[in-house]
Design a protein around this nucleic acid. Structure first.
Length: 490
RNA sequence: GGCGACGUAGCCAAGUGGUAAGGCAGGGCUCUGCAAAAGCCCCAUUCGGCAGUUCGAAUCUGCCCGUCGCCUCCA
């Protein structure tokens, strides 16, 4: 078995094979930080993060490029409206985006090119296109001549006639054809500009930066790279235009062997978009929800499917994830419950099952099902430490491939999470003197008092102590070997 | 108008010809002084509707209904 992936270019699921032995080069269209990122962005980038992790598991050396379009009409407009430098706005939003990506556990990209750092490469490409007759100069910029590219529309499965019939293309007297698009826009007063001889000062159009940066970083010889990714909304016109710009200059098209697109995220059954304003900034959402739960939620749905987001779905995902966490914890720190567990079913190994799921066009939902079943069949660490250790190893290996990194909180380190004023609050809840005690000590003291009360069958006192702790956020568990406690999961 | 996706239990969702994964919620149970936590068990004769192809269809074909996306900035 090997990885099979849906390829938008051929509209089929194909066996994946890299162009160069042992190496996979991926270009993902990144953010245009003219506004805050939302959950829809997260879904898309989360998918490509899992893809590259799985590719690495499959033994490939992965090069992941994700660009930053740090110059576009919107950020310029925002700059003018707020009287700030457009680039300061872009940097602000991008820094915030990166913070969100960090929280979500997205791996650093190997290259993170900014469009404005590749002006030379962009201009070089435009020159070549003009020389080859694929582009022409008008009063307000340099345009791509769509009619010169036979395959235009193939990626998006459109034909030029249909596109023109759509008649929603902006009429522009400067253009030869409504479908033509800007490669370079001449600067109007007050707009950022880069000199560009002999055409005129200005800035790059939207699509050219990706063509230029992909060529510079992944494919200088012009023979193509492996995977070009992005959200499904980029297929047309963005990716179609990238192809039109790149392929006429290549020694050997196609630009990318696989075109991979993530399904859009809907909110209130409408697409999440800056222009629709129906979204909560990602950074805010991450404040209210566990980033791992958000990742888990997306892992539960096929990456190509349109998905409608509801807040409750994150909670449900978090609950599901907590099952995995509890199982993980039980392997690390067996809670001796005396409960019988079914023994591990000796079938196909978990590796085979997970690979089968993921090989099938990255079916992460099936992979999660495998994990849930695996976790329901864990060996008892007391009875069979060897197999328990193997099970723990399996989780430690596979969870990170999905981008879920088991961390200290999975082991419920209670002391670390108690607020500073905890002792104070517990003291007043119990009208008891706990002066000078660190929060964990205070808990231990109360637990000990309760143990004594229980010994004396003083249930009233026992319950009073437990309830007071509960009000302060500490949850007690009476087990066979005594009482354990942890910070309640809010 | 053109192109496309989707419609599976109360909710989310996998499955694209061989007789419905998984998660959440719900119910039962174990444990327990009572709890909590955890675990175990149960929970779709059925896949938007109708017709057809087939030994066999959620899966293929046709029509219909519904929702959404792209064609304009978009992950």
């Amino acid at each position: 078995m090997a990885l099979k992936l849906y390829n938008t270019r051929t509209r089929t699921v194909e066996a994946f094979a890299p162009l160069r032995e042992g190496e996979v080069r991926i270009y993902v269209c990144g953010l245009t930080p003219s506004a805050q990122a939302h959950l829809g962005h997260a879904r898309s980038f989360l998918f490509f993060d899992v893809l590259r992790r799985y590719l690495a598991h499959r033994g490939y050396r992965v090069t992941h490029v994700q660009n930053v379009t740090d110059i576009d009409d919107r950020s310029i407009k925002a700059g003018i409206e707020t009287g700030r430098d457009y680039h300061a706005i872009v940097e602000h939003f991008y820094a915030e985006f990166k913070e969100s990506m960090r929280k979500l556990g997205i791996l650093e990209y190997d290259f993170e090119p900014y469009a404005t750092k590749y002006i030379d490469e962009i201009q070089q490409m435009i020159r070549e296109l003009v020389e080859n007759g694929h582009a022409y100069v008008t009063r307000d910029g340099v345009y791509y001549r769509v009619s010169t590219f036979q395959r235009y529309g193939r990626l998006a499965n459109r034909n030029v006639a249909d596109l023109e019939a759509g008649a929603r293309v902006e009429v522009d007297e400067n253009k030869e054809d409504p479908l033509d698009f800007a490669l370079w826009k001449f600067a109007k007063p007050g707009e950022p500009r880069w000199p560009f001889e002999p055409y005129g000062d200005g800035r790059p159009g939207w699509h050219i930066e990706c063509s230029a940066m992909a060529r510079a970083l992944l494919d200088p010889p012009g023979v193509g790279f492996d995977i070009h990714g992005g959200g499904a909304d980029l297929i047309f016109p963005h990716h179609e235009n990238e192809i039109a710009q790149s392929e006429p200059l290549m020694a050997q098209p196609p630009m990318a062997n696989f075109w991979v697109h993530g399904g859009l995220l809907l909110f209130d059954n409408r697409k999440m978009a800056k222009s629709l304003g129906n979204f909560e900034p990602l950074i805010d959402l991450l404040q209210r929800h566990d980033p791992q739960a958000i990742r888990w939620l997306f892992l539960q749905t096929g990456y190509r499917k349109v998905m409608n987001f509801t807040e409750g779905s994150i909670t449900a995902a978090a609950l599901g994830l907590s099952r995995i966490k509890a199982a993980y914890r039980s392997l690390c720190r067996p809670e001796r419950s005396g409960q019988s567990r079914r023994s591990v079913v000796e079938g196909r190994s978990i590796d085979e099952k997970l690979e089968a799921a993921l090989d099938d066009d990255m079916n992460t939902a099936a992979a999660l099902a495998v994990l849930f079943e695996f976790v329901a069949d864990l060996p008892d660490p007391d009875a069979d430490p060897t197999r328990a250790a193997a099970a723990l190893d399996a989780l430690d290996y596979w969870l990170p491939i999905l981008g879920i990194e088991p961390n200290a909180s999975w082991l419920a380190e209670p002391a670390a999470e108690l607020p500073a004023d905890f002792t104070q609050r517990l003291q007043s809840a119990l009208s008891m003197n706990l002066d000078g005690m660190m929060p964990p000590e205070a808990v231990e003291r109360v637990v000990a008092l309760r143990a004594q009360a229980r010994l004396e069958k003083n249930w009233g006192e026992s319950d009073r102590l437990r309830d007071a702790l509960a009000r302060c956020g500490v949850e007690l568990k009476d087990g066979k070997e005594g009482t354990t406690w942890r910070v309640a999961s809010s």
